[in-house]
């Protein structure tokens, strides 16, 4: 059986999804059963899951309007690219 400290260390240094399956199962089991470090490490695991979901969303779904490049900024971008093109 893993000790609390080992679990905390594993969760502190790495995203638990990157660990080998065996270790992952051990961690999950400990974290779900342990009354000492469980609440705390469940939170860490949850936030690591959240981050993974977010990165996936970022890859797959279009950004909301307020996180898109504004029309002005697009215009500036095109202009600078054109300038660069003319120069070469």
């Amino acid at each position: 059986m893993l000790r609390c400290k080992q679990v905390s260390q594993a969760l502190a240094s790495d995203d638990y999804w990157e660990l080998p399956l065996r270790k992952r199962i051990g961690l999950r089991l400990h974290v779900f059963l342990c009354v000492v470090c469980g609440p705390f490490n469940r939170f860490i695991m949850l936030m690591q899951d959240a981050k993974r979901h977010y990165l996936k969303h970022e890859q797959e779904d279009p950004p909301p309007p307020h996180l898109c490049l504004s029309c002005d900024a697009k215009q500036r971008l095109v202009e600078s690219l054109n300038r660069e093109n003319d120069a070469t």
Binding site: C4, K5, S8, V36, C37, F40
Partner: peptide
Amino acid sequence: VGVPHWRP
């Protein structure tokens, strides 16, 4: 234990 004493 490697965790702080307060609960999340």
